[in-house]
Design a protein around this nucleic acid. Sequence first.
DNA 1: GCTAATTGGACCGGAACAGTACTGTTTCCT
DNA 2: AGGAAACAGTACTGTTCCGGTCCAATTAGC
Lengths: 153, 153
Amino acid sequence: MLKLSKLTDYAVVALVRLGQKNEVTTSPVLSRSTGIPEPTVAKVLKILATQGIVTSQRGARGGYRLAHPLEEISIASVIQAIDGPISLTTCVDGGDCDARSTCGLGGQWDMVNAAIRNALSAITLADMKNHTVIDRLGGLQAPSMPSGPAATA
Amino acid sequence: MLKLSKLTDYAVVALVRLGQKNEVTTSPVLSRSTGIPEPTVAKVLKILATQGIVTSQRGARGGYRLAHPLEEISIASVIQAIDGPISLTTCVDGGDCDARSTCGLGGQWDMVNAAIRNALSAITLADMKNHTVIDRLGGLQAPSMPSGPAATA
DNA sequence: GCTAATTGGACCGGAACAGTACTGTTTCCT
DNA sequence: AGGAAACAGTACTGTTCCGGTCCAATTAGC
Ligand code: FES
Ligand code: FES
């Protein structure tokens, strides 16, 4: 349904919360503070650690800390860390599409895909925290639409 | 992975092909012309028919025809017809998110979701056919990005 | 050196999707 | 009228992927 996994949603919440208290934080603490189930938030942080979004400190008195400030972490990077690369269709980036030769849509999906990716890259976690997403998206509505699409609902 | 289902990909290909020959076309013909397996393309067209994207003519010499010109069919409408509504996270539109009260991201996802939806609504199947997607997306890149996000890869 | 705390990685169950098959209904052509 | 062609709807099956759980590796502190 063009939806991203629930893990990604959790990741954003956890990261924003991590950015508010700028110190090493453990999974249980983050779980209590966000309301996300403890095992789940732990898993999310584990993945984020492997992707370099957060740095981890093992052992007692360990925990997680942001690798970059919130302003430098884009939504896209979080999505790609959890859900994998942003690829609307299988045929972007030379995917193994069955109807490659006959479809006639050569590479147009790549454009759409890149547009989505750019939009998501422009939004940072700081925007999510400060509720300033709308500012960044000001130019996102299609600029010129001569013959308005009808079947949009 | 923020990917839309393969059926949607097929639907776009089939619809563009349908728009090229502006006459009633059968599933087998469309299958041969697009390279999509016959049962699959049939299933896709059936769904599109129920959603009013195409009109169907039953019986011998029957087939499918576009209900609207290509210029009036947006990518978003096709996606919604096949994959259901565009909802990035479960918490858009009053979803049953577990951490609603504690997450602190009140409604920001709705903004992001709406942006994606608007972008996809601005692209029509005619743009896909004519390879003019890039034109429509010219204003999609975020306008101002003072402190560029670093972790974008 | 031992214990406790915490991350790291592997495992498993279940839901959603893609694809297939079958039956029924409608329409055209002979 | 009869048969063939094509859509409509439903049901089924195999597979993939997400979500969650469990145990092993690692480090700080006493
Ligand atoms: S290459 Fe995938 S549909 Fe054209
Ligand atoms: S409402 Fe879903 S994460 Fe905040």
